[in-house]
Computed example of a mutant assay.
Amino acid sequence: MLILGLTGSIGMGKSTTAKLFEEAGVPVYDADAAVHELYEGQAVPAIEAEFPGTTADGKVDRARLSARVVHDPAAMRRLEKIVHPMLGASRQKFFDNAEAAGKPVVVVDVPLLFETGGENRVDAVVVVTTSAELQRERVLARGTIDRDKLDAILARQMPDAEKRKRADFIVDTSHGLDPVRARIRDILAEAVKMPRRRT
């Protein structure tokens, strides 16, 4: 089974691309969704024990937890020590299920794939991209993030040009869904011929 890592900066169309991989019959592991799930279940007791007052009603209060760890690298490492092993187990279960179902290719959707060294855990990397103008336009149109917050997020992410340089495949989402669907078909045809690369 070949594992494709799917990544791309905010507003590039990564979530849409992930949906189109699913539409093409490829199982997709969504790392963000997996964290959400942990924050509403398995990780709650350990996070409350380590960071008292950051959970409520049996769930992690993401805003409180974020405020506690965002400017404190040591706290962030303590949080990662709790969450990463659980995430690893949930990802492995996803791989086992896909393998048992005889799937030749799976996609792991990880926003910070390069930033966390995740490219070593996949066989090939798909980077989703668009123009900087379209990226800003999409993100600001959501109405949930202002320009300053967007700049702060982009400052934490590897520049798009660098991601594209390190990609095995690039998906440009600037021209609607059909070209993306066609690109995914090409990627899947090529990916099944690739050697396994993950370490």
Rank of each mutant, 00 (worst) to 15 (best):
H36Y: 14
I47H: 00
D123R: 02
F21V: 04
M1Q: 08
T54L: 06
A98K: 00
E50P: 04
V28L: 12
E115G: 10
V106E: 00
G176E: 06
M158V: 01
Q42D: 13
G11Y: 02
G53Q: 03
A155W: 03
F51I: 04
L79K: 04
A74G: 06
P179Y: 10
D57V: 05
N120K: 15
M158P: 00
S9Q: 08
A67T: 10
E99T: 11
D178N: 13
V171D: 00
F169T: 05
N97E: 15
D61I: 08
E162A: 12
L134A: 11
V180G: 00
T199L: 14
D186V: 11
D32L: 12
G11H: 02
R91Q: 13
V26M: 10
D178W: 11
D148F: 08
K93Q: 15
L20R: 04
D160P: 01
G118A: 09
V171Q: 01
P27C: 12
P85Q: 11
E22F: 12
H71W: 06
R121E: 15
E190W: 11
D30Q: 14
L38R: 11
G5A: 11
A74N: 05
R147M: 13
L188Y: 04
L20I: 11
I184F: 04
L112N: 02
I145K: 00
H84K: 10
A56G: 09
R121F: 14
A33V: 12
D61Y: 06
D178V: 13
R181F: 07
L6C: 07
V83A: 04
R185G: 15
E22T: 14
I184C: 03
A56I: 10
T116A: 14
D123Q: 04
R166Y: 05
V107S: 00
V122S: 01
V69E: 01
A18F: 04
L188D: 02
A67P: 03
E50T: 14
Q157Y: 03
K59T: 12
V69Y: 06
T16I: 14
E37I: 11
E115R: 11
E80N: 15
V110I: 15
Q42V: 13
D109C: 10
I187E: 00
D96H: 10
V139S: 01
F169W: 14
L150Y: 01
V69H: 03
D96M: 10
Y29D: 04
K81C: 12
L177Q: 13
D61F: 10
T116C: 13
A43L: 10
E162K: 13
P195D: 09
L140E: 07
L20C: 12
L188S: 03
V106W: 00
A75S: 10
I187Q: 01
L20D: 03
T173Y: 06
D178I: 09
